[in-house]
């Protein structure tokens, strides 16, 4: 879709960290939700950035109050839910452009 490929999905923060860890080649972008069972998005982001501090994480939540914290710990951008696919692709492009 739009030239991007989803290489993995996780149902909670803990699974996200395990999945990220399992990729030999790390994904270019991680789309991270906040409220999840077992481990929330903030904790998962911290651990993923610990594994690879170059990781590009787009943080997303319906709870706007977490935006500042998410950006301060290293998320590249924050998307308020509900967001459109266009918004998402725009954010991905911005980050990808920087990558290039």
């Amino acid at each position: 879709m739009s030239g991007y490929r989803v290489i993995g999905e996780a149902k909670n923060g803990q699974e996200a960290v395990s999945l990220f860890n399992s990729f030999p080649k790390k994904p270019d972008i991680v789309l991270m939700d906040y409220r999840m069972p077992i481990k929330n998005g903030i904790e998962a982001t911290k651990q993923i950035l610990k594994i690879n501090d170059k990781s590009k994480i787009i943080f997303t939540s319906a709870d706007n109050s977490i935006k500042q914290e998410a950006l301060s710990i290293g998320a590249r951008s924050f998307l308020d839910k509900p967001y459109s696919v266009t918004d998402l692709i725009t954010e991905i492009k911005k980050i990808y452009k920087n990558l290039a």
């Binding site: 409220r35 999840m36 069972p37 077992i38 929330n40 903030i42």
Partner: peptide
């Protein structure tokens, strides 16, 4: 309980 950091339920 206002702890909503872990949710989904």
């Amino acid at each position: 309980n206002v702890d909503r950091t872990v949710s989904g339920m």
